[in-house]
Nucleic acid binder design. Sequence first.
DNA 1: GGGCATATATAGCAGCGCGATACAGGTAGG
DNA 2: CCTACCTGTATCGCGCTGCTATATATGCCC
Lengths: 193, 193
Amino acid sequence: MNVVTLCLGILALGDASGYEIKKRFDGPLRRIQEPSFGSIYPALNRLTREGLVTCTVQAQDKRPDKKVYSITAEGRAHLKAELQKSLPGPDKVHSDFLVTMLFQEMLSPAFVAAAVDERIAFYRDLMTTLDCPAGQQSAAKDFVCGYGVAVCRAAIDYLEAYRRDLPAPEPAADPAAGQKERGVLVNPQAMEI
Amino acid sequence: MNVVTLCLGILALGDASGYEIKKRFDGPLRRIQEPSFGSIYPALNRLTREGLVTCTVQAQDKRPDKKVYSITAEGRAHLKAELQKSLPGPDKVHSDFLVTMLFQEMLSPAFVAAAVDERIAFYRDLMTTLDCPAGQQSAAKDFVCGYGVAVCRAAIDYLEAYRRDLPAPEPAADPAAGQKERGVLVNPQAMEI
DNA sequence: GGGCATATATAGCAGCGCGATACAGGTAGG
DNA sequence: CCTACCTGTATCGCGCTGCTATATATGCCC
């Protein structure tokens, strides 16, 4: 799934400018993908070249002109074919948090505790973003949001249980906390993964 | 978190060759990141240049020579500093599955059902990979695996509940199934996200 | 009132990393 | 026997992210 198909999909749900497409991925959809301007604008140019979308320039008062894109009939057909070409592959996850936790034995306990706390706060925030639109919109969006909520809830539960077993936090949760020296791993062989 | 730091971290858990580093990310760690050879080998070269690891060539019988890398004292210090530089940012997720599900209203029901079924099977498989090493290894690895299991379980529960509400599957689950024509979205405005 | 951050809107560029490919011999299965 | 897969290192192209530039208007704090 590339950004071109992704933009085409968003445009299938309604006309939008490049900027608006980007904004859609700041909400609940940020759990799906987070394309950048650097990939969205070239994608829109390519879709226009290929006749899958059309572009209408809207002159705006005291603002740069807005390029609003609309999907064409060929675009809809192309999207449908692209999505059903093959079953979706596994998710690609890059988790700095889990990397940090994997090496936690060489970090300060204060830093690890702060990382867990921040992650819990992050998921709580994400869940409120996801939880708001219940039932009143499309079934597809409900499914995607509901999926996110279910996963968030599981993550929060797990992290809170882990947090309770951690030694006392104390150091007022400043990010640069915990420069206390700790030795290297006692038994590196035990860490074979 | 770049591949360079990631490789340094793996080497902090024990010596390894480029090939072995790659293999580590085929197991439970594939939920964290999946670096490719195209990024691992340049990363190891750079780490060697910078004196953070050393390289020993092991001649092997009837096999290509093996370059085994070991982390240095500077490497350990650099890794610790790098990990504690700032709290880990949010995960980056690319989910083709959720994109497909978001646009499910323009796809055939058979295809959607097949996608959900495959996803359930995928998570079941992932959970068995994650669930095996319980308690007998390092606390850090237990945490990472436990986290994966918790999230998997939540995803499976959610998907199975959704699956039960789906119309009858029938078409023998072939990937190219369901070319049955379906109209465009009835109410695009309702899909505002 | 001056400075700063933020929001709207488009666009280019450097660098990083994935996927594919190449090469080469060993092993195992149909 | 031939195909497929495993070990092992390495490179190349392409796509994408993150950063930066450019314009303009609004709101906020000191």
